[in-house]
Computed example of a mutant assay.
Amino acid sequence: MAGHSGSKKVIYAALAGNLAIALTKFAAAFFTGSSAMLSEGVHSLVDTGNGGLLLYGMHRAARPADRTHPLGHGRELYFWSFIVALLVFALGAGVSLYEGIVHIMAPEPVVNAKVNYIVLGLSFLFEGSSWLVALREFRQQKTSNQGWLQAVQSSKDPSVYTVLFEDSAALLGLTVAFAGISAAQMLQMPELDGVGSIGIAIILGATAIFLARESKGLLIGEPASPDVQEKVLAIAQADAAVQRANGVLTVHLGPRQIVAGLSIEFEDHLTAPEIEACVERLEARLKDEMPEITRLFVKPQTTGTWQQRRKAIADASEEG
C-alpha cells in the first residue's frame, strides 16, 4: 500500500499544479494573443485531465476479483495509462501543431509580452516543484544499478513515470515557449511564436509515443523481474516434497499484482493428498513473504518436459 500512496501523492501534486498553471496560461494567452502560450495552456489542461484519469485507473484497478474478472482488475491502470498517452498525442501535440501552423500562416504580434514572461516563470516554478516530487518517488522505485531509461522500461507502475515524463515535457515546453515569444518580440517576427508552438508539439508527440509504447507492453503482459522469479523458485525448491522447481512463468496484472505459474517435479513417492498439501504450503508461504503474488498455479511436470516446452517457446520467439 505504501507504493500506492506514493503514486497518488505524485499525481495529486501534478494535478494541483497543472490546474492552476492551465488557468493562468489561458488568461495570459487571452490578453497577449500568444500562440505558444495558448499551446502551453492546452498542454497543462491535458496534463490535468491525465492526472484525473490515472487516479481513476488506480481506483478501478484496486477492485477485487469477481465472476467476470477472476484474476482481478489490475490492468485497468495500464489501460488508462495508454489512454493518457493517446491524449497527450492527440490533444496536446495536435492542438499545439494546429495553433503553430495557424499563427505562421496568419501571424499576429504578441502584446503585453511581459505578462507571458511572468506566467512562464511562475509555471516553471510550479512545474519544477511537481517534477521534483515525481523524481523523488521514482528514485525510490529504481534500483541503484539501473539507468534512468532502463528503470522506466523495467517499471511496472506507469503512474509515477507518466507524471515524471509529462512534467519533463512541460518544462521543456516552457523553455521552447519562452524562446519563441522572446525571439518573436526581439526580431519583430511574430511567425516565430508559431514556430514555438510547433516545437512544443514535437516535444509532446515524442513523449506520447514513448509513453504509449511502454503502456502497450504492460497492457499486453510483462513478466516479473528476474529477482522475483528467482525468489519464487527458491521458496518452492526449499519444500521437502519438491524434487526440483523447474521454472516459473509470471505476468504482471498491476504494479503489485503478479500471476505465477510454477513447474515442479515432485518426489516420486508422494500421493495426491501429499502433493495437494505441498501446494497449499507453497501458497501460504508466498502469500506471507511475497504478497505481490496474487495468484499461483502449480503444474506437476518432469524437468525434461519443462525444458522441451521452454525450447519450443524460445524457437517460436526467434521465428516471430
Rank of each mutant, 00 (worst) to 15 (best):
V259A: 06
Q237L: 03
T271Y: 02
Q243N: 14
V242K: 08
A241Y: 10
I258D: 13
L249W: 10
V232D: 05
V232Q: 07
D268E: 13
V248W: 10
A240F: 07
G247Q: 12
E265D: 03
G247K: 05
A260E: 05
Q257L: 10
N246Y: 02
D239G: 06
D239Q: 14
G261Y: 01
K231D: 12
H252V: 06
N246S: 02
T250W: 07
D268I: 07
A234N: 11
R256N: 13
R244K: 15
A245R: 02
G261K: 12
A238W: 03
H252N: 05
D239H: 08
D239F: 15
I235L: 04
G254P: 13
I235T: 07
K231R: 09
V259W: 08
H252R: 06
V248N: 02
Q237F: 04
D239M: 15
H252A: 08
H252F: 06
N246R: 00
N246D: 06
I258L: 09
T250A: 10
G261A: 15
Q243K: 15
A272S: 15
N246I: 02
P273W: 07
E265K: 03
A272Q: 15
R244Q: 14
V228T: 14
N246Q: 06
N246K: 00
T271L: 08
Q237M: 04
L249V: 13
G247C: 08
V248M: 13
V248Y: 08
V251K: 08
L249R: 05
V232T: 02
A241L: 15
D239I: 12
Q229W: 00
L253V: 00
T271W: 03
A238P: 00
P255H: 09
A260G: 03
L262W: 00
K231I: 00
V259G: 02
L262M: 11
Q243P: 12
S263W: 04
H252P: 11
A260K: 01
Q237E: 05
G261F: 04
L253A: 08
Q237Y: 06
A236W: 01
Q229N: 14
Q237T: 01
P273S: 02
V259Q: 15
L262D: 05
P255D: 00
E265F: 04
V228F: 13
A238S: 11
I258G: 02
Q237S: 11
F266Q: 04
V242H: 00
T250Y: 04
S263A: 07
